[in-house]
Design a protein around this nucleic acid. Structure first.
Lengths: 292, 292
DNA sequence: TCGGCGCGTGAAAGTAAGTTTCATGCGTGG
DNA sequence: CCACGCATGAAACTTACTTTCACGCGCCGA
């Protein structure tokens, strides 16, 4: 591990160096990134000295040779770069923002939603849910609006590894299907706010049939908690409608991903096989190379 | 300004590289810091290829030569703060992993996909796309399989702020609809691999009608680039099917989010109003309090 | 004042690293 | 089955880096 502070070290022993080496050292300290870009001849010329002296300088600071100096300088210079800059955490995009700012702000918030969701996700609850999913003969997933995408995604994932899972975009269909669940089956309801009536209804029915009910929401104390045996929570802070709730979507998908991997891990070989088979199935739809 | 994400860029270009170059690329991506320390001969040997190929690889990723690669890699490696504990970056979940580990690994990779995507996203391309979206009288979005969710999400977002946008899950429907596009309209194709035949066909038709075509893919040098006026790239490293491609989904959604915010920002007041109206529309579907 | 001594220095020789060129062989499409 | 083109490594070549060596300058003692 390169002990940090090569630049610091150099400026420390600057006075101990010979005049010609000092000229080199000063250039290096003044702009490490620039020095890293130069060739030895180039740097020697800039310091009004010979290549030999540059090498001597490298040895003086304890390095093998010039290439080593270059990469150390590049590394050091990179480390120095201040972390991006003040992003309005969870805040709105300022009106005059340029696109780079927009991207940075969104990415920051999105990534944070994912990370914070993972942090607060309860492994034990996850495990219990995975257990239930594994034991279930049938799985129903329901979500309305934006959460419907996530429900659908989850359904597809489970299906791909050979689990019987359903997602009905239509509440009526969902209610009908859920009414056929029994003990040992699982119903999952997804609702960011935890107050989506339709989702509650679906879980309600599922529960009354003896199925295990699972809620995925951002608000653990919301009504959905009352109809769920297990509550999984996301941690998206979105307050405004600014970003069309993408952060919460990402958080939900992350949770779904965790559950999916958990289920797949229970039967590694079979899941892997299933994934390969399904991947193979769409291969013919791919074109081989760039077209003329 | 060292444009960020060389590693990210390399993994994006991976499939476009020749086999021998891919071997080099994989070594570089696997351990950038180590690669930076090696001499070109050394690296070539490790990749079981010749120095010439290493040079070709450097050129392929847009660098002058090998020394430049070394420096960039050193810089990149330094900037990268190693994840707290040993998480197999982009790797598989170890068989005996407990749920806390699974969650940590997934969240780490998911969050990284979002961040790295943002880093390498070209603001100018985004801007151009937003411009086109704003000017369009009609927008068509198409994606197959998992990318279909993202297409659908985008369609819904645009629709919510009053833009005329379509998403047809069926290729035939999509082709038909796209055939009716004209100059000034926009077609967006989403394909993680960039090789999905159906998506290419859709963009092809759109282009032939004079519409502006946009591609969203993880691999900028894939066939989809040939039929797109603007190429937006994600930066997900997923190699295995482990997580059912969630990371790439998140990356795509992030890009979509950026575009959406960009479009909305052009007409702030109107967009805000539209969002409020649509939010209000589903309010009646929400339950007020926890139910006894 | 002069002669040696040693250190800093750059020129030049020498070596290693990086780059270009080219011939081969393999796979693809006609 | 042939022709073409592309990927590839061997070898020639160039550039960068390293070592060697001799010069010169300043210091010291005679």
């Amino acid at each position: 591990m390169p002990e940090p502070g090569l630049i610091v070290q150099i400026s420390g022993l600057l006075p101990a160096l010979s005049p010609a080496e000092q000229r080199v050292a000063r250039l290096v300290v003044a702009d490490p990134a620039d020095a890293a870009r130069r060739t030895i001849t180039d740097l020697a010329t800039a310091a009004e000295t010979s290549e030999a002296t540059v090498i001597r300088f490298c040895r003086s600071v304890g390095l093998e040779g010039y290439p080593q100096l270059r990469i150390r300088l590049a590394a050091e210079a990179a480390r120095r770069v201040e972390p991006p800059d003040a992003r309005v955490v969870g805040g709105d995009i300022p009106p005059g923002a340029d696109f780079a700012q927009i991207i940075a702000t969104i990415a920051f918030n999105d990534a944070r939603a994912v990370e914070e969701t993972a942090q607060q996700l309860d492994p034990e609850v996850c495990e219990a849910v995975v257990e239930a999913l594994n034991a279930a003969t049938r799985i129903e997933i329901y979500g309305a609006g934006a959460s419907g995408f996530v429900a659908s995604d989850f359904q597809q994932k489970l299906h791909r590894i050979g689990r019987t899972a359903y997602y009905w975009p239509d509440v009526h269909a969902a209610l009908t299907s859920v009414a056929l669940l029994g003990k040992g089956d699982v119903a999952i309801g997804i609702s960011h706010t935890g107050t989506t009536g339709d989702v509650l209804d679906v879980l309600d029915v599922a529960r009354s049939r003896g199925a295990t009910t699972v809620a995925l929401t951002n608000f653990p104390r919301s009504p959905i908690a009352d109809v769920a045996d297990h509550v999984l929570t996301t941690a998206a802070r979105e307050t405004t409608y600014r970003s069309g709730a993408t952060a919460s979507r990402l958080a939900q998908l992350t949770v779904v991903d965790c559950l999916f991997v958990g289920v797949a891990a229970r039967n590694r070989a079979k899941a892997r096989k299933a994934l390969e088979v399904t991947a193979e199935a769409v291969r013919s739809r791919r074109v081989a190379r760039r077209r003329g």
